[in-house]
Amino acid sequence: MKRVLTRHVLQRGEARLSSVLLLLLVLAISWLLWSGLYKPLVIGLGAFSCLLSVYLAHRMGFFRHHDALLRLLPRLPGYWLWLLKEIIISSIDVAKLILKPSLPISPTVVVLQSEAKTDVGQVILGNSITLSPGTVTLDVHEGKILIHCLTVESARELQKGEANRRAAALERK
């Protein structure tokens, strides 16, 4: 019985009170900044959503990766700026495709081998790909990422590996 409980606790991830409070603080500040509505009912719903998010994060094992997240935090702003630029470029490319009467799309599915070694790095790469218009991450399994691309050109661009290298660089020490 003890062995099962230990494995269950390790699977979820140990949560230090400071880690839980830090996540709750970040979520609450983000919610307050993005909401812009400060009525009692809305603030109550926001507080509930932040608490629910922290609870779900604990259940999903978020705190198991807490140290990895803290390590990559200083490199995130540079990554976000690069990602924003890529999202804008992809948005323009997809808009051009849609506006052409012939609609020259060539849907394709590709598999990328992630250079990121941790689950956190692979999730960041998969989510970054999905944020870019015209690409959707379908699956992440054992370091392989299955991606649907709107065009063969966007698939080739992904296979060049710039996004892969940048996501992997986030987790380096």
Score class of each variant (00 low, 15 high):
Glu171Ala: 01
Met1Ala: 10
Gln11Asp: 15
Ile87Met: 15
Lys117His: 14
Asn164Gln: 11
Leu131Pro: 00
Gly36Lys: 09
Ile88Cys: 10
Ile147Trp: 00
Ser53Gly: 04
Thr130Ser: 14
Leu33Arg: 14
Ala168Trp: 02
Val94Thr: 04
Ile43Ser: 03
Ile87Val: 15
Glu86Ser: 14
Gln159Asn: 07
Gly121Phe: 00
Lys160Ala: 12
Val136His: 06
Gly46Lys: 09
Arg59Cys: 07
Tyr79Ser: 04
Trp80Ser: 10
Ser114Leu: 02
Asp67Ala: 11
Ala167Glu: 02
Leu138Cys: 13
Thr130Trp: 00
Gln11Phe: 05
Gly121Ile: 00
Gly46Asp: 10
Gly61Cys: 04
Ser91Tyr: 08
Met60Gly: 09
Leu25Asp: 05
Leu56Thr: 08
Thr108His: 04
Ala68Gly: 03
Phe48Asn: 05
Arg156Lys: 09
Lys96Val: 10
Ile129Met: 08
Ile147Arg: 02
Pro74Lys: 13
Val111Ser: 14
Phe62Trp: 11
Pro40Val: 14
Asn164Ile: 08
Ala28Asn: 06
Val111Phe: 09
Leu27Gln: 00
Ala167Trp: 00
Ala116Met: 01
Ser154Pro: 00
Ser35Trp: 07
His66Met: 15
Pro133Asp: 02
Glu162Trp: 12
Arg75Ile: 10
Leu69Pro: 07
Leu52Gly: 10
Ile98Phe: 11
Met1Lys: 13
Leu24Ile: 04
Asp139Ile: 06
Glu14Gln: 08
Leu56Trp: 14
Ala95Ile: 09
Ser114Arg: 01
Thr137Met: 03
Ser154Phe: 00
Gly121Glu: 02
Gly134Gln: 03
Leu56Val: 12
Gln11Cys: 07
Trp31Gly: 05
Trp31Glu: 05
Leu138Tyr: 12
Ala167Leu: 03
Glu171Gln: 04
Ile145Ala: 00
Val94Cys: 10
Ala28Ile: 13
Glu171Gly: 01
Tyr38Ser: 15
Arg166Met: 07
Ser53Glu: 02
Ser106Phe: 04
Thr118Cys: 05
Leu37Met: 11
Leu138Glu: 14
Pro133Ala: 01
Met1Glu: 09
Ile147His: 00
Leu73His: 11
Val94Tyr: 08
Gly13His: 03
Ile147Gln: 00
His66Asp: 13
Leu73Gln: 09
Leu33Cys: 08
Lys173Ser: 15
Ser53Cys: 09
Lys2Asn: 11
Val94Gly: 03
Asp139Cys: 01
Trp31Lys: 04
Ser18Phe: 06
Leu70Met: 15
